[in-house]
Design a protein around this nucleic acid. Structure first.
Lengths: 231, 231
DNA sequence: CGACGAATTGAACCTATTCAAAGGGTGTGG
DNA sequence: CCACACCCTTTGAATAGGTTCAATTCGTCG
Protein backbone atom coordinates (compact mmCIF):
# COMPACT_ATOMS: atom_id res chain seq x y z
CA UNK A 1 0.00 0.00 0.00
CA UNK A 2 1.58 3.25 -1.03
CA UNK A 3 2.27 5.70 1.76
CA UNK A 4 0.66 9.09 2.35
CA UNK A 5 3.94 10.76 1.52
CA UNK A 6 4.09 8.98 -1.81
CA UNK A 7 0.55 10.05 -2.54
CA UNK A 8 1.20 13.71 -1.82
CA UNK A 9 4.50 13.66 -3.64
CA UNK A 10 2.83 12.07 -6.62
CA UNK A 11 -0.11 14.45 -6.67
CA UNK A 12 2.12 17.48 -6.47
CA UNK A 13 4.19 16.12 -9.34
CA UNK A 14 1.25 15.57 -11.67
CA UNK A 15 1.45 17.83 -14.70
CA UNK A 16 -2.27 18.51 -14.68
CA UNK A 17 -2.30 19.54 -11.02
CA UNK A 18 0.74 21.79 -11.39
CA UNK A 19 -1.41 24.88 -10.99
CA UNK A 20 -2.48 24.02 -7.44
CA UNK A 21 -0.79 25.28 -4.31
CA UNK A 22 0.53 22.87 -1.71
CA UNK A 23 -2.51 23.51 0.47
CA UNK A 24 -4.85 22.88 -2.42
CA UNK A 25 -3.05 19.68 -3.32
CA UNK A 26 -3.40 18.58 0.25
CA UNK A 27 -7.10 19.29 0.02
CA UNK A 28 -7.48 17.51 -3.30
CA UNK A 29 -5.75 14.53 -1.75
CA UNK A 30 -8.78 14.01 0.48
CA UNK A 31 -10.88 13.19 -2.56
CA UNK A 32 -8.63 10.30 -3.55
CA UNK A 33 -8.84 6.76 -2.31
CA UNK A 34 -6.00 4.31 -2.72
CA UNK A 35 -6.07 0.70 -3.86
CA UNK A 36 -3.46 -1.98 -4.37
CA UNK A 37 -3.55 -4.45 -7.22
CA UNK A 38 -1.54 -7.57 -7.92
CA UNK A 39 -0.19 -8.24 -11.38
CA UNK A 40 -3.02 -9.30 -13.64
CA UNK A 41 -5.79 -7.88 -11.44
CA UNK A 42 -8.56 -6.13 -13.30
CA UNK A 43 -9.26 -2.55 -12.19
CA UNK A 44 -12.41 -2.29 -14.26
CA UNK A 45 -13.99 -4.12 -17.15
CA UNK A 46 -15.05 -2.66 -20.45
CA UNK A 47 -18.80 -2.11 -20.10
CA UNK A 48 -18.76 -1.40 -16.37
CA UNK A 49 -20.54 1.78 -15.25
CA UNK A 50 -17.91 4.54 -15.42
CA UNK A 51 -17.72 6.43 -12.17
CA UNK A 52 -14.08 7.02 -11.32
CA UNK A 53 -10.94 8.61 -12.58
CA UNK A 54 -7.74 6.77 -11.70
CA UNK A 55 -4.16 7.93 -11.28
CA UNK A 56 -1.25 5.52 -11.10
CA UNK A 57 0.89 5.98 -8.00
CA UNK A 58 3.22 3.08 -8.72
CA UNK A 59 3.32 0.19 -11.16
CA UNK A 60 2.00 -0.11 -14.67
CA UNK A 61 -1.50 -0.43 -16.05
CA UNK A 62 -2.63 -1.67 -19.42
CA UNK A 63 -5.74 -0.59 -21.27
CA UNK A 64 -7.32 -3.17 -23.55
CA UNK A 65 -10.22 -3.57 -25.90
CA UNK A 66 -11.97 -6.87 -26.48
CA UNK A 67 -13.35 -8.44 -29.60
CA UNK A 68 -14.58 -11.98 -30.06
CA UNK A 69 -12.26 -15.00 -29.92
CA UNK A 70 -9.33 -13.61 -27.95
CA UNK A 71 -8.76 -10.88 -30.50
CA UNK A 72 -7.85 -8.31 -27.86
CA UNK A 73 -6.13 -5.01 -28.52
CA UNK A 74 -3.62 -3.48 -26.14
CA UNK A 75 -4.36 0.22 -26.50
CA UNK A 76 -1.87 1.66 -24.08
CA UNK A 77 0.62 0.91 -21.32
CA UNK A 78 0.45 3.52 -18.56
CA UNK A 79 3.08 4.44 -15.99
CA UNK A 80 3.08 6.31 -12.65
CA UNK A 81 1.52 9.75 -13.00
CA UNK A 82 -0.73 8.75 -15.89
CA UNK A 83 -4.49 8.89 -15.48
CA UNK A 84 -7.22 6.71 -16.94
CA UNK A 85 -10.90 5.93 -16.44
CA UNK A 86 -13.81 8.32 -16.61
CA UNK A 87 -13.69 12.07 -17.13
CA UNK A 88 -17.44 12.63 -17.29
CA UNK A 89 -19.61 13.07 -14.20
CA UNK A 90 -22.59 10.93 -15.14
CA UNK A 91 -22.28 7.42 -13.77
CA UNK A 92 -24.59 6.13 -16.49
CA UNK A 93 -21.85 5.99 -19.06
CA UNK A 94 -19.64 2.95 -19.38
CA UNK A 95 -15.94 2.27 -19.74
CA UNK A 96 -14.94 1.57 -23.33
CA UNK A 97 -11.82 -0.35 -22.32
CA UNK A 98 -10.65 -2.75 -19.67
CA UNK A 99 -7.97 -1.58 -17.24
CA UNK A 100 -5.66 -4.21 -15.82
CA UNK A 101 -2.59 -4.11 -13.58
CA UNK A 102 0.34 -5.01 -15.81
CA UNK A 103 2.60 -5.12 -12.78
CA UNK A 104 1.85 -4.86 -9.06
CA UNK A 105 0.38 -1.38 -8.79
CA UNK A 106 -0.92 1.21 -6.39
CA UNK A 107 -3.76 3.23 -7.85
CA UNK A 108 -5.51 6.36 -6.61
CA UNK A 109 -9.14 6.91 -7.49
CA UNK A 110 -11.36 9.95 -7.44
CA UNK A 111 -15.04 10.21 -8.26
CA UNK A 112 -15.62 11.46 -11.78
CA UNK A 113 -17.99 14.08 -10.37
CA UNK A 114 -15.41 15.27 -7.84
CA UNK A 115 -12.77 15.53 -10.49
CA UNK A 116 -15.09 17.48 -12.72
CA UNK A 117 -15.73 19.92 -9.89
CA UNK A 118 -11.99 20.26 -9.48
CA UNK A 119 -11.62 21.06 -13.17
CA UNK A 120 -14.45 23.56 -13.06
CA UNK A 121 -12.88 25.29 -10.06
CA UNK A 122 -9.37 25.31 -11.52
CA UNK A 123 -9.46 25.93 -15.28
CA UNK A 124 -5.72 25.24 -15.70
CA UNK A 125 -6.42 21.66 -14.64
CA UNK A 126 -9.10 21.30 -17.29
CA UNK A 127 -6.78 22.73 -19.92
CA UNK A 128 -3.97 20.41 -18.92
CA UNK A 129 -6.26 17.39 -19.06
CA UNK A 130 -7.49 18.58 -22.44
CA UNK A 131 -3.90 18.74 -23.67
CA UNK A 132 -3.19 15.22 -22.51
CA UNK A 133 -6.39 13.95 -24.09
CA UNK A 134 -5.58 15.70 -27.36
CA UNK A 135 -2.15 14.09 -27.33
CA UNK A 136 -3.75 10.68 -26.84
CA UNK A 137 -6.15 11.37 -29.68
CA UNK A 138 -3.25 12.07 -31.99
CA UNK A 139 -1.51 8.91 -30.81
CA UNK A 140 -4.62 6.88 -31.56
CA UNK A 141 -4.94 8.44 -35.01
CA UNK A 142 -1.30 7.75 -35.70
CA UNK A 143 -1.98 4.12 -34.84
CA UNK A 144 -4.87 4.12 -37.31
CA UNK A 145 -2.55 5.50 -39.96
CA UNK A 146 0.02 2.81 -39.32
CA UNK A 147 -2.54 0.02 -39.39
CA UNK A 148 -3.87 1.38 -42.68
CA UNK A 149 -0.64 1.94 -44.52
CA UNK A 150 2.23 -0.06 -43.07
CA UNK A 151 3.34 -3.67 -42.90
CA UNK A 152 3.39 -5.70 -39.71
CA UNK A 153 7.16 -5.37 -39.54
CA UNK A 154 7.00 -1.59 -39.79
CA UNK A 155 4.27 -1.42 -37.18
CA UNK A 156 6.33 -3.61 -34.86
CA UNK A 157 9.30 -1.31 -35.29
CA UNK A 158 7.12 1.70 -34.48
CA UNK A 159 5.69 0.04 -31.38
CA UNK A 160 9.13 -0.93 -30.10
CA UNK A 161 10.40 2.59 -30.64
CA UNK A 162 7.47 4.06 -28.76
CA UNK A 163 7.93 1.64 -25.87
CA UNK A 164 11.65 2.35 -25.73
CA UNK A 165 10.98 6.07 -25.52
CA UNK A 166 8.25 5.74 -22.91
CA UNK A 167 9.56 2.94 -20.71
CA UNK A 168 13.15 2.56 -21.80
CA UNK A 169 16.22 2.51 -19.59
CA UNK A 170 19.35 3.66 -21.37
CA UNK A 171 22.19 1.18 -20.94
CA UNK A 172 25.56 0.77 -22.52
CA UNK A 173 24.41 -1.89 -25.00
CA UNK A 174 21.10 -0.23 -25.81
CA UNK A 175 17.73 0.84 -24.45
CA UNK A 176 16.10 -1.79 -22.27
CA UNK A 177 12.31 -1.69 -22.16
CA UNK A 178 11.38 -1.83 -18.49
CA UNK A 179 8.38 -4.12 -18.67
CA UNK A 180 7.52 -7.75 -19.07
CA UNK A 181 6.36 -8.01 -22.66
CA UNK A 182 5.38 -11.30 -24.23
CA UNK A 183 5.14 -11.90 -27.96
CA UNK A 184 1.40 -11.87 -27.45
CA UNK A 185 1.47 -8.45 -25.77
CA UNK A 186 3.45 -7.05 -28.68
CA UNK A 187 1.10 -8.77 -31.12
CA UNK A 188 -1.89 -7.14 -29.46
CA UNK A 189 -0.26 -3.74 -29.86
CA UNK A 190 0.56 -4.35 -33.50
CA UNK A 191 -2.55 -6.08 -34.78
CA UNK A 192 -0.66 -9.25 -35.56
CA UNK A 193 -0.49 -12.81 -34.23
CA UNK A 194 2.11 -13.99 -31.70
CA UNK A 195 3.58 -16.25 -34.39
CA UNK A 196 4.04 -13.39 -36.82
CA UNK A 197 5.50 -11.27 -34.05
CA UNK A 198 7.98 -14.04 -33.24
CA UNK A 199 9.15 -14.15 -36.84
CA UNK A 200 9.45 -10.37 -36.99
CA UNK A 201 11.43 -10.18 -33.76
CA UNK A 202 13.80 -12.85 -35.04
CA UNK A 203 14.34 -10.82 -38.20
CA UNK A 204 14.91 -7.58 -36.30
CA UNK A 205 17.41 -9.34 -34.06
CA UNK A 206 19.22 -10.80 -37.07
CA UNK A 207 19.47 -7.28 -38.45
CA UNK A 208 21.06 -6.10 -35.21
CA UNK A 209 18.26 -3.67 -34.38
CA UNK A 210 17.13 -5.35 -31.16
CA UNK A 211 17.96 -8.06 -28.67
CA UNK A 212 15.11 -10.02 -27.17
CA UNK A 213 14.36 -13.00 -25.02
CA UNK A 214 11.46 -14.44 -23.12
CA UNK A 215 9.37 -11.47 -21.96
CA UNK A 216 11.99 -8.80 -22.52
CA UNK A 217 13.23 -6.56 -25.32
CA UNK A 218 16.21 -4.27 -25.73
CA UNK A 219 16.53 -1.81 -28.59
CA UNK A 220 20.09 -1.59 -29.91
CA UNK A 221 19.60 0.74 -32.83
CA UNK A 222 16.93 3.39 -32.36
CA UNK A 223 17.79 5.19 -35.59
CA UNK A 224 17.68 1.95 -37.56
CA UNK A 225 14.30 1.05 -36.12
CA UNK A 226 13.02 4.50 -36.93
CA UNK A 227 14.05 4.40 -40.56
CA UNK A 228 12.41 0.98 -40.84
CA UNK A 229 9.21 2.24 -39.21
CA UNK A 230 9.00 5.31 -41.45
CA UNK A 231 9.34 3.26 -44.60
CA UNK B 1 -19.69 34.08 -47.90
CA UNK B 2 -21.82 33.21 -44.91
CA UNK B 3 -23.75 36.10 -43.40
CA UNK B 4 -23.28 37.67 -40.00
CA UNK B 5 -26.65 36.29 -38.93
CA UNK B 6 -25.56 32.79 -39.86
CA UNK B 7 -22.38 33.25 -37.89
CA UNK B 8 -24.16 34.39 -34.74
CA UNK B 9 -26.84 31.77 -35.08
CA UNK B 10 -24.20 29.12 -35.51
CA UNK B 11 -22.08 30.27 -32.59
CA UNK B 12 -25.05 30.40 -30.26
CA UNK B 13 -25.99 26.89 -31.32
CA UNK B 14 -22.57 25.38 -30.65
CA UNK B 15 -22.71 22.85 -27.84
CA UNK B 16 -19.42 24.00 -26.38
CA UNK B 17 -20.47 27.64 -26.26
CA UNK B 18 -23.86 26.88 -24.73
CA UNK B 19 -22.78 28.38 -21.41
CA UNK B 20 -22.30 31.87 -22.83
CA UNK B 21 -24.92 34.59 -22.76
CA UNK B 22 -26.07 36.29 -25.95
CA UNK B 23 -23.87 39.28 -25.21
CA UNK B 24 -20.87 37.07 -24.57
CA UNK B 25 -21.49 35.17 -27.79
CA UNK B 26 -21.64 38.46 -29.61
CA UNK B 27 -18.31 39.35 -28.06
CA UNK B 28 -16.73 35.99 -28.87
CA UNK B 29 -17.87 36.49 -32.45
CA UNK B 30 -15.37 39.30 -32.79
CA UNK B 31 -12.53 36.86 -32.39
CA UNK B 32 -13.63 34.80 -35.37
CA UNK B 33 -12.72 35.44 -38.97
CA UNK B 34 -14.62 33.85 -41.82
CA UNK B 35 -13.31 32.17 -44.95
CA UNK B 36 -14.91 30.51 -47.93
CA UNK B 37 -13.54 27.41 -49.57
CA UNK B 38 -14.41 25.66 -52.80
CA UNK B 39 -14.76 21.90 -52.93
CA UNK B 40 -11.31 20.35 -52.75
CA UNK B 41 -9.58 23.41 -51.32
CA UNK B 42 -7.08 22.72 -48.62
CA UNK B 43 -7.63 24.57 -45.35
CA UNK B 44 -4.30 23.51 -43.90
CA UNK B 45 -1.71 20.87 -44.60
CA UNK B 46 -0.39 18.30 -42.21
CA UNK B 47 2.90 19.72 -40.94
CA UNK B 48 1.85 23.37 -41.17
CA UNK B 49 2.40 25.47 -38.02
CA UNK B 50 -0.77 25.06 -35.97
CA UNK B 51 -2.18 28.43 -34.97
CA UNK B 52 -5.93 28.34 -35.44
CA UNK B 53 -9.04 26.59 -34.32
CA UNK B 54 -11.72 26.24 -36.98
CA UNK B 55 -15.48 25.86 -36.77
CA UNK B 56 -17.58 24.84 -39.74
CA UNK B 57 -20.40 27.28 -40.52
CA UNK B 58 -21.63 25.47 -43.61
CA UNK B 59 -20.41 22.63 -45.80
CA UNK B 60 -18.32 19.61 -44.95
CA UNK B 61 -14.65 19.17 -44.15
CA UNK B 62 -12.53 16.08 -44.28
CA UNK B 63 -9.50 15.35 -42.13
CA UNK B 64 -6.84 13.18 -43.69
CA UNK B 65 -3.49 11.67 -42.88
CA UNK B 66 -0.82 11.02 -45.47
CA UNK B 67 1.60 8.18 -45.93
CA UNK B 68 3.79 7.44 -48.90
CA UNK B 69 2.41 6.43 -52.30
CA UNK B 70 -1.13 7.73 -52.10
CA UNK B 71 -1.85 5.64 -49.03
CA UNK B 72 -3.99 8.34 -47.43
CA UNK B 73 -6.35 7.83 -44.53
CA UNK B 74 -9.63 9.67 -44.19
CA UNK B 75 -9.86 10.17 -40.43
CA UNK B 76 -13.13 12.02 -40.20
CA UNK B 77 -15.85 13.84 -42.11
CA UNK B 78 -17.01 16.95 -40.26
CA UNK B 79 -20.27 18.85 -40.58
CA UNK B 80 -21.52 22.34 -39.60
CA UNK B 81 -20.94 23.01 -35.92
CA UNK B 82 -17.91 20.73 -35.68
CA UNK B 83 -14.53 22.14 -34.80
CA UNK B 84 -11.05 21.13 -35.91
CA UNK B 85 -7.51 22.47 -35.94
CA UNK B 86 -5.39 23.49 -33.01
CA UNK B 87 -6.42 23.62 -29.35
CA UNK B 88 -3.04 24.57 -27.96
CA UNK B 89 -1.79 28.17 -27.80
CA UNK B 90 1.80 27.69 -28.94
CA UNK B 91 2.17 28.31 -32.66
CA UNK B 92 5.26 26.13 -32.74
CA UNK B 93 3.29 22.92 -32.85
CA UNK B 94 2.13 21.50 -36.14
CA UNK B 95 -1.06 20.06 -37.53
CA UNK B 96 -1.01 16.27 -37.56
CA UNK B 97 -3.64 16.04 -40.30
CA UNK B 98 -4.65 17.83 -43.45
CA UNK B 99 -8.02 19.60 -43.53
CA UNK B 100 -9.77 19.88 -46.85
CA UNK B 101 -13.16 21.19 -47.97
CA UNK B 102 -15.17 18.11 -48.94
CA UNK B 103 -17.91 20.37 -50.27
CA UNK B 104 -18.09 24.14 -50.73
CA UNK B 105 -17.73 25.39 -47.19
CA UNK B 106 -17.74 28.48 -45.00
CA UNK B 107 -15.32 28.19 -42.12
CA UNK B 108 -14.82 30.38 -39.07
CA UNK B 109 -11.36 30.62 -37.53
CA UNK B 110 -10.12 31.81 -34.17
CA UNK B 111 -6.56 32.06 -32.93
CA UNK B 112 -5.60 29.12 -30.76
CA UNK B 113 -4.39 31.55 -28.11
CA UNK B 114 -7.69 33.44 -28.15
CA UNK B 115 -9.66 30.25 -27.86
CA UNK B 116 -7.53 29.12 -24.98
CA UNK B 117 -8.22 32.40 -23.21
CA UNK B 118 -11.90 31.84 -23.81
CA UNK B 119 -11.68 28.39 -22.26
CA UNK B 120 -9.71 29.69 -19.29
CA UNK B 121 -12.31 32.41 -18.72
CA UNK B 122 -15.29 30.08 -19.13
CA UNK B 123 -14.55 26.66 -17.63
CA UNK B 124 -17.77 25.11 -19.01
CA UNK B 125 -16.38 25.67 -22.49
CA UNK B 126 -13.19 23.85 -21.62
CA UNK B 127 -15.19 20.97 -20.14
CA UNK B 128 -17.41 20.75 -23.21
CA UNK B 129 -14.40 20.71 -25.53
CA UNK B 130 -12.84 18.07 -23.32
CA UNK B 131 -15.98 15.94 -23.66
CA UNK B 132 -15.94 16.24 -27.44
CA UNK B 133 -12.25 15.40 -27.57
CA UNK B 134 -12.77 12.40 -25.31
CA UNK B 135 -15.55 11.20 -27.60
CA UNK B 136 -13.24 11.50 -30.59
CA UNK B 137 -10.54 9.60 -28.73
CA UNK B 138 -12.94 6.74 -28.16
CA UNK B 139 -13.97 6.83 -31.80
CA UNK B 140 -10.35 6.61 -32.88
CA UNK B 141 -9.72 3.73 -30.51
CA UNK B 142 -12.78 1.96 -31.80
CA UNK B 143 -11.35 2.31 -35.30
CA UNK B 144 -8.10 0.77 -34.07
CA UNK B 145 -10.06 -2.13 -32.64
CA UNK B 146 -11.87 -2.70 -35.90
CA UNK B 147 -8.70 -2.55 -37.97
CA UNK B 148 -7.11 -5.06 -35.61
CA UNK B 149 -9.88 -7.58 -35.33
CA UNK B 150 -12.36 -7.35 -38.19
CA UNK B 151 -12.45 -8.11 -41.90
CA UNK B 152 -12.62 -5.45 -44.59
CA UNK B 153 -16.29 -6.26 -45.15
CA UNK B 154 -17.11 -5.79 -41.48
CA UNK B 155 -15.18 -2.55 -41.35
CA UNK B 156 -17.00 -1.31 -44.43
CA UNK B 157 -20.32 -2.11 -42.80
CA UNK B 158 -19.30 -0.22 -39.67
CA UNK B 159 -18.17 2.81 -41.67
CA UNK B 160 -21.40 2.92 -43.66
CA UNK B 161 -23.44 2.69 -40.46
CA UNK B 162 -21.51 5.51 -38.89
CA UNK B 163 -21.90 7.70 -41.96
CA UNK B 164 -25.62 6.95 -42.15
CA UNK B 165 -26.04 7.99 -38.53
CA UNK B 166 -23.98 11.15 -38.85
CA UNK B 167 -24.91 12.38 -42.31
CA UNK B 168 -27.95 10.30 -43.22
CA UNK B 169 -31.28 11.56 -44.48
CA UNK B 170 -34.14 9.23 -43.67
CA UNK B 171 -36.20 8.44 -46.75
CA UNK B 172 -38.93 5.96 -47.50
CA UNK B 173 -36.58 3.45 -49.14
CA UNK B 174 -33.75 3.87 -46.65
CA UNK B 175 -31.19 6.25 -45.23
CA UNK B 176 -29.41 8.30 -47.88
CA UNK B 177 -25.90 9.45 -46.98
CA UNK B 178 -25.80 13.16 -47.78
CA UNK B 179 -22.31 13.39 -49.23
CA UNK B 180 -20.41 12.60 -52.39
CA UNK B 181 -18.50 9.47 -51.51
CA UNK B 182 -16.35 7.67 -54.05
CA UNK B 183 -15.15 4.11 -53.65
CA UNK B 184 -11.76 5.60 -52.94
CA UNK B 185 -13.12 7.78 -50.12
CA UNK B 186 -14.71 4.73 -48.54
CA UNK B 187 -11.52 2.76 -49.06
CA UNK B 188 -9.52 5.41 -47.25
CA UNK B 189 -11.88 5.18 -44.30
CA UNK B 190 -11.69 1.41 -44.20
CA UNK B 191 -8.02 0.75 -44.84
CA UNK B 192 -8.76 -1.06 -48.07
CA UNK B 193 -8.25 -0.47 -51.80
CA UNK B 194 -10.92 1.00 -54.09
CA UNK B 195 -11.10 -2.36 -55.89
CA UNK B 196 -11.78 -4.26 -52.69
CA UNK B 197 -14.34 -1.66 -51.68
CA UNK B 198 -16.07 -2.07 -55.02
CA UNK B 199 -16.36 -5.82 -54.53
CA UNK B 200 -17.62 -5.36 -50.98
CA UNK B 201 -20.24 -2.80 -52.02
CA UNK B 202 -21.44 -5.14 -54.77
CA UNK B 203 -21.82 -7.91 -52.20
CA UNK B 204 -23.67 -5.69 -49.72
CA UNK B 205 -26.00 -4.55 -52.48
CA UNK B 206 -26.63 -8.14 -53.55
CA UNK B 207 -27.55 -8.91 -49.94
CA UNK B 208 -30.06 -6.06 -49.95
CA UNK B 209 -28.29 -4.08 -47.23
CA UNK B 210 -27.47 -1.03 -49.35
CA UNK B 211 -28.05 0.62 -52.70
CA UNK B 212 -25.17 2.47 -54.27
CA UNK B 213 -24.12 4.19 -57.44
CA UNK B 214 -21.40 6.51 -58.60
CA UNK B 215 -20.50 8.71 -55.62
CA UNK B 216 -23.56 7.94 -53.53
CA UNK B 217 -24.74 5.36 -51.01
CA UNK B 218 -28.09 4.55 -49.43
CA UNK B 219 -28.44 2.19 -46.50
CA UNK B 220 -31.54 0.02 -46.76
CA UNK B 221 -31.08 -2.21 -43.73
CA UNK B 222 -29.41 -0.56 -40.75
CA UNK B 223 -30.00 -3.55 -38.48
CA UNK B 224 -28.60 -5.95 -41.04
CA UNK B 225 -25.50 -3.85 -41.49
CA UNK B 226 -25.06 -3.66 -37.74
CA UNK B 227 -25.21 -7.38 -37.20
CA UNK B 228 -22.67 -7.80 -40.00
CA UNK B 229 -20.38 -5.16 -38.49
CA UNK B 230 -20.53 -6.69 -35.01
CA UNK B 231 -19.58 -10.12 -36.26
C1' DC C 1 -24.02 13.63 -77.41
C1' DG C 2 -19.36 12.96 -76.43
C1' DA C 3 -15.58 12.42 -73.19
C1' DC C 4 -13.58 11.84 -68.97
C1' DG C 5 -13.41 10.04 -64.40
C1' DA C 6 -15.37 6.46 -61.68
C1' DA C 7 -16.56 1.78 -61.09
C1' DT C 8 -16.34 -3.02 -62.17
C1' DT C 9 -14.24 -7.37 -63.10
C1' DG C 10 -10.58 -10.86 -63.70
C1' DA C 11 -6.35 -13.34 -62.61
C1' DA C 12 -1.88 -13.69 -60.48
C1' DC C 13 0.50 -12.68 -56.42
C1' DC C 14 1.80 -11.84 -51.56
C1' DT C 15 1.54 -10.98 -46.84
C1' DA C 16 0.03 -12.59 -42.78
C1' DT C 17 -2.98 -16.19 -40.52
C1' DT C 18 -3.92 -20.67 -39.02
C1' DC C 19 -2.97 -25.04 -37.26
C1' DA C 20 0.29 -28.11 -35.50
C1' DA C 21 4.35 -29.73 -33.31
C1' DA C 22 8.76 -29.20 -31.17
C1' DG C 23 12.07 -26.45 -28.53
C1' DG C 24 13.53 -23.47 -24.42
C1' DG C 25 13.72 -20.45 -20.23
C1' DT C 26 11.88 -19.65 -15.56
C1' DG C 27 10.52 -20.35 -11.26
C1' DT C 28 8.64 -23.30 -7.96
C1' DG C 29 8.53 -27.43 -5.06
C1' DG C 30 10.68 -31.31 -3.47
C1' DC D 1 19.98 -26.95 -4.97
C1' DC D 2 18.40 -29.33 -8.67
C1' DA D 3 14.71 -31.07 -11.47
C1' DC D 4 10.52 -30.94 -13.38
C1' DA D 5 6.53 -28.81 -15.29
C1' DC D 6 4.53 -25.10 -17.39
C1' DC D 7 4.11 -21.61 -20.46
C1' DC D 8 6.34 -18.89 -23.74
C1' DT D 9 8.51 -19.13 -27.98
C1' DT D 10 10.00 -20.88 -32.25
C1' DT D 11 9.50 -23.08 -36.68
C1' DG D 12 7.06 -25.28 -40.57
C1' DA D 13 3.60 -25.89 -44.12
C1' DA D 14 -0.89 -24.98 -45.96
C1' DT D 15 -4.48 -21.52 -46.54
C1' DA D 16 -7.03 -17.33 -47.10
C1' DG D 17 -8.01 -12.49 -47.51
C1' DG D 18 -6.70 -8.66 -49.70
C1' DT D 19 -3.71 -6.34 -53.07
C1' DT D 20 -2.00 -5.32 -57.49
C1' DC D 21 -2.12 -4.60 -62.28
C1' DA D 22 -4.69 -4.38 -66.30
C1' DA D 23 -8.54 -4.13 -69.22
C1' DT D 24 -13.35 -3.00 -69.80
C1' DT D 25 -17.79 -0.85 -68.79
C1' DC D 26 -20.57 2.62 -67.08
C1' DG D 27 -22.49 6.98 -65.45
C1' DT D 28 -22.62 11.83 -65.49
C1' DC D 29 -21.45 16.43 -66.44
C1' DG D 30 -20.37 19.83 -69.72
Amino acid sequence: MCSTELRLELLSGLPFLASLSAAEIDQANDYFHTFDYAEGDTIYFSGDPAGHLYVIASGQVRLMQHSGAGKDVLIDLLKPGDFFGSLTPGGDERYAETAQAHSPACIMAITAADFRNLMAAYPPIALAVLDLTTARLQEARETVRQLSAFSAEQRAAAVLLQLAEKLGDEQSEGVLIQTRLSREDLAQMTAATPETMSRIMAQLQKDGLITSGRQWVMVNDMAGLKSLADG
